[in-house]
């Protein structure tokens, strides 16, 4: 019972923090609240027995990603402008999607059900045999590194790729990136030339294409 109460309290805190993040305009406060949100999520994962996940979420969500976001705020400014368009359409879309998803949860197995399909397929094998096959007490490490080694190799490659991509985007000095920075101006020149060049090729298609671009 006490576990259920902790569960409900943490989830309610998470909901409240998420709504505060949505409503606040000061991005500094938003980033700080998202760190708190991650810490609450980590506590929630401990309550759900996922200690490894909680460990990672606390280190990553409350630590590294908060530092990264604050560093970016120092580069971009920390006030959000009021949204220019009405929130009615997004609200309708979100409400409909949420209602459909909640309707779908009634088909889900009950919370904590040991006989749910997800707990019957490979998990018993991992829990019963991994001590004999791999010999590590921490089943999460056995599955991560041994049974699902391919999967983890892929994830590590994704991290490597993301680091390379960030290097490509931010590696050079500000200003010496001719191709990237001058692109809008080059585009405008190209756009100006287009009507003169293209009618010979495709007189019917081009104006509509350009109009579509202008209005979008």
């Amino acid at each position: 019972m006490i576990i259920t109460l902790i569960d409900i309290a943490l989830l309610t805190f998470m909901g409240a923090t998420a709504i505060a993040i949505l409503r606040l305009r000061s991005l500094f406060a938003v980033v700080m609240l998202s760190g708190i949100y991650s810490l609450l999520a980590a506590s929630m994962f401990v309550a759900l027995d996922a200690v490894d996940v909680a460990f990672t979420e606390a280190a990553v969500g409350a630590g590294i990603s908060t530092v990264l976001m604050i560093t970016v705020l120092s580069l971009t400014g920390e006030r959000e402008r009021a949204p220019g368009h009405s929130p009615i359409l997004p609200m309708i879309v979100v409400t409909l999607t949420g209602a459909a998803l909640i309707y779908a949860t009634f088909d889900m197995p009950a919370f904590g059900d040991a006989n749910a399909p997800v707990n019957l397929h490979v998990a018993p094998r991992y829990l019963n045999d991994s001590m004999a096959e791999v010999g590590l007490p921490n089943v999460v490490t056995s599955v991560l590194a041994s049974y699902r080694g391919y999967d983890t190799l892929g994830e590590v490659t994704v991290i490597f790729t993301a680091a390379v991509a960030v290097m490509m985007l931010l590696g050079g000095r500000k200003g010496d990136d001719a191709g990237f920075k001058n692109e809008p101006e080059e585009n405008s020149v190209a756009d100006g030339d287009d009507p003169a060049d293209d009618p010979a090729d495709d007189p019917a298609d081009d104006p509509s294409g350009k109009n579509g671009k202008g209005t979008a």
Partner: peptide, 9 residues
């Protein structure tokens, strides 16, 4: 343990 592994990564 399986969802833990997937989410950890």
């Amino acid at each position: 343990p399986l969802p833990h592994v997937l989410i950890l990564t």
